[in-house]
Amino acid sequence: MTFWVTQALNGISFGMLLFLLAAGLSLIYGLMRMLNLAHGSYYILGGYVGLAAVRVTGSFVLAAVAATATVTLVGIVMERFFLRRFPEQELPQALLTFGFLLIFADLSLWLWGGTPQTLPKPEIFERSIRIGAIVFPTYRLFVIAIGLVVGLGLWWLQEGTRLGAMIRAGVDDAEMARATGVNVGLLSTAVFAFGAFLAGLGGIIGGPFVGVYPGADFEILEMALVVVIIGGLGSLKGAFVGGLVVGLLDNFGKALFPELALFTVFAPMAVILALRPTGLFGAR
């Protein structure tokens, strides 16, 4: 019983982290039909910059601000000066963003070395709560709370605000949205920057329990891609449900069948694909 509850909690908190990453990936694709393979790089950049900032300032909050600001800026530069030149051309986008993935991976290795590192937790979440025989680390609960808050916030943004209506219009028909006066160019940069921000936030949030290390960019990217494939590109609900599914599959897979760890994530993905090629909540 303890095993199942603890693993489920771990799976859900990892799922919330994946949601932060997949939401950005999915929104960016939805609005711009753009696949950003450097999305995992934003995770490690967030983690490493956060780590450096924590060492200087000693504050988790300041580190989070520094990390997300840096990653958001990187995202804006990538979108404005590079990706914008290749609208709706998936192959150049893939090559370009893969190039950035390699550049960031090697720069991080150069600057921060090859040893896996973890971010210190904020002090108030160092403790654990005990309920009966089960011990909950409060940090995991904090991660779940962040995921829920971001999820609700995004849902409200998309369904309840003018900005959200503009984004939805852009997703459905960019040309039509442009014709009705929506500045789709600016909107695209804003959404891309916001996606990068969420991924950078993921680096900060995931830093204390997943850690940052060479290769984490690839692993996080692959996991987020599986989430998006399962949930459906462009769907926020899909990113949320997909994140939970993949987080749980990954955690129980690693705990129960360590030899086939990745397989327990990829095999269900293949099955869902075979049944629904556009994912659970994908439009087309």
Binding site: E90, A94, I229, M269
Partner: peptide, 14 residues
Amino acid sequence: GSYFLMITLALGQV
């Protein structure tokens, strides 16, 4: 399109 890119990637990673 992009789905093809992602799926070939994911299958390869299996």
